[in-house]
Computed example of a mutant assay.
Amino acid sequence: MSEYQYYEFLAVDRPLDAGEQAEVRTLSTRARISATSFTNEYEWGDFKGDPGRMMERYYDAHLYLANWGTHRIMFRLPGTLLDPDIARQYRVGELVSSWTAGDHVILEFTSEDESGEWDEHLEVPLSAVVGIRAELAAGDLRSLYLAWLSAYGSWERDEEAFGYEAEDVLEPPVPAGLGTLTAPQRALADFLRLDSDLLAVAADGCAELRAVQDDPGELAAWVVGLDGEEKDRLLLRVVRDQAAQVRAEMLRRFRGVGKGRPRRTVAELLDGAAERRQGA
């Protein structure tokens, strides 16, 4: 089987100017390049660029797939919209990583499957999942949890993916609404090969996604009850141009993200998925 690789990048917040387009052109003479996108396919040879560096400098979203089993998604968000400390809670080795570059946070989600099975007709355009970026910016962390879950779910395909100590790893905060994914989140789960039974077990008992319109009186009472020193810290961050991040964090806390249930271990989640599969 000949090799096949697909690269796609999108610039969402700011289009590339002529000079920047010329710079990325030096990385590939055959790529389809515009002010907002970069797309190329390889059936021989390899891409000369570094996707991570391209994300740091030019683009806000990236999708990569290869016929030897690698699927990869990357997103870049302003640090004012996604707290790097929150992203760190969902890291899983090389499969789910995050880092900061200037004022941005970059996320990288990877799925590997070396079984040799390849769908030549697989079509997962970046446009199908780029909506994840806006959801993260609005405080919806479901995609981070899906990436974390898919990473440990790969243990069922590759028994050498993790050591036995990983069985006792506790899940990160569980966002509400895992049982009702958005279209981009569903596309992400499929692209990362997230097992449907594992997702069902993770979503079992998960809080439902609250209505977008929160009760004003309830929200006001919650804010009044915050500690005075904490309010001062939050207000200072707003003055320092972190208003969007502060809003997202406060709404997550108000809506009880990750609360109301004990955190499960990786072993409990995988065992639950196996039991559900056997009972089907």
Rank of each mutant, 00 (worst) to 15 (best):
M1A: 12
S2E: 12
Y4D: 08
Q5W: 06
Y7M: 08
L10D: 09
V12I: 15
D13Y: 09
D13C: 13
R14D: 07
R14K: 15
L16I: 03
L16A: 10
A18L: 14
G19Q: 15
E23V: 14
E23D: 15
R25D: 04
R25S: 15
S28T: 14
S28P: 00
R32L: 13
R32A: 14
R32M: 09
T36R: 15
S37H: 15
W44Q: 13
D46T: 10
D46K: 13
M55D: 07
M55C: 03
M55R: 03
E56R: 09
E56G: 12
Y58D: 08
L63F: 04
A66F: 04
N67Y: 07
G69W: 02
H71G: 03
R76D: 03
L77I: 01
G79C: 02
T80R: 09
L81K: 13
L81T: 11
L82G: 10
D83G: 03
D85A: 13
I86R: 10
Y90L: 01
Y90H: 01
S98G: 10
D103F: 01
H104N: 15
I106C: 14
T110R: 15
E112F: 11
E114C: 08
S115Y: 02
S115F: 01
S115L: 01
G116T: 10
E117Q: 13
W118I: 07
E123Q: 08
L126M: 10
V129K: 00
V129F: 00
V130K: 11
I132F: 03
A137H: 05
A137T: 05
G139K: 06
L141F: 06
L144A: 06
L146M: 02
W148R: 06
W148H: 11
S150C: 05
A151V: 04
A151E: 03
Y152C: 01
W155K: 12
W155V: 00
E156S: 14
Y164N: 11
V169A: 05
E171R: 01
P172F: 06
P173Q: 04
P173K: 07
P173A: 04
G177Q: 08
L178N: 01
G179D: 00
T180E: 14
L181A: 07
A187L: 04
A189D: 01
L192Q: 01
R193W: 00
L194M: 09
D195Q: 07
S196P: 04
D197T: 10
L198I: 00
L199F: 00
A203Q: 12
L209A: 15
L209M: 15
L219K: 06
L219S: 12
A221L: 14
W222V: 09
V223W: 15
L226G: 03
G228R: 11
E229C: 04
L235F: 09
V239S: 06
V239W: 05
R240K: 10
R240L: 11
A243T: 11
V246R: 05
V246C: 03
A248D: 10
F254T: 04
G256M: 08
G256E: 05
G258V: 07
G258F: 06
K259F: 08
K259I: 02
G260T: 07
R261M: 12
R261T: 12
R263H: 08
T265A: 06
T265W: 06
E268T: 04
E268A: 14
E268P: 03
L269E: 09
G272C: 08
A274R: 14
R276Q: 13
R276I: 12
R277D: 10
G279T: 13
A280H: 13
